Amino acid sequence: MDLKDHIRGIPDFPKPGILFYDISTLLRHASAWRTAMARLAETIAPHKPDVLAGIESRGFLVAAPLALELGLGFVMLRKPRKLPGLTIGLNYALEYGTDRIEMQADAVQKGQRVVVLDDLLATGGTMSAGISLLRQAGAVVPCAACLIELTFLKGRDRLDVPFEALVAYDS
């Protein structure tokens, strides 16, 4: 099954000149979604994760069902002030400005193997920050993965772990 057949391109969203890759069409097609989860499970299982971490918010849609499929725990990497309890965070640079990603301080144990997931890899800034935050907490990050990679933005070049994507767009 070609997963690209189930991903819709929305021109000029969220602003003119941007082509948004919408996974809602993939999510609502049960067979395609099951195929995507099975392929991701096959891709990350050899890295022997203990826990999967999803990046807010569409990364939750990928990581949570995949964790369930693999019999693993799930950790949320969120925007600031969205998690209860003690949190740790990391500020990171964007093209224009900065952002912050946080997780609960007790979400991972030192030495746990945590694979980071999101729906899409663009410039790699958020994924790189998620990897750094998990390492700050003592986790080992053996790989990262997404449903979609925008290869023309060269985001994987910012990552220092193996990276896998199910679908790639070159422009």
Rank of each mutant, 00 (worst) to 15 (best):
D2V: 01
L3Q: 05
L3R: 03
K4R: 15
K4A: 12
D5A: 14
H6Y: 15
H6A: 06
I7P: 00
G9C: 11
P11H: 04
P11T: 01
P14H: 07
K15Q: 13
P16D: 11
I18V: 15
L19M: 13
L19E: 06
F20N: 02
F20S: 00
I23H: 00
I23C: 00
T25F: 11
T25M: 01
L27E: 13
R28W: 08
R28Y: 08
H29W: 02
A32K: 04
W33S: 08
T35G: 05
A36I: 03
M37D: 06
M37R: 15
A41M: 07
T43P: 07
T43E: 13
I44Y: 02
I44M: 11
P46W: 10
H47R: 12
H47K: 12
K48R: 15
P49I: 10
D50G: 02
D50Q: 08
V51E: 07
V51L: 14
L52A: 02
A53L: 05
R58P: 00
G59Y: 12
L61D: 06
V62C: 08
L66F: 11
A67V: 06
E69S: 06
L70P: 04
G71E: 03
V75G: 04
M76E: 08
L77Y: 09
P80K: 10
P84Q: 06
P84H: 05
G85A: 03
G85C: 05
I88M: 13
I88K: 14
L90P: 00
L90T: 07
Y92A: 05
L94W: 14
L94K: 14
Y96S: 04
Y96C: 03
G97I: 02
R100S: 08
I101M: 08
I101F: 09
E102W: 10
M103N: 02
A107G: 00
A107R: 02
A107F: 06
V108N: 11
Q109G: 12
K110V: 12
K110R: 13
K110H: 12
V115P: 01
V116Y: 11
L117T: 04
D119H: 04
L121D: 07
G125A: 05
A129V: 12
G130Y: 02
L133A: 08
L133Q: 03
L134R: 01
R135K: 15
R135V: 05
Q136V: 09
A137F: 08
V140M: 07
P142Q: 06
A144D: 07
A145R: 02
A145M: 04
I148H: 08
E149Y: 12
L150P: 04
L150Q: 02
L150C: 01
T151N: 13
L153T: 07
K154W: 07
G155V: 08
G155D: 04
R156K: 15
R156V: 14
D157N: 15
R158V: 03
A165K: 12
A165C: 11
V167W: 06
Y169I: 09
Y169M: 04
Y169G: 03
D170E: 15
D170N: 15
D170M: 06
S171C: 08
S171A: 14
S171I: 05
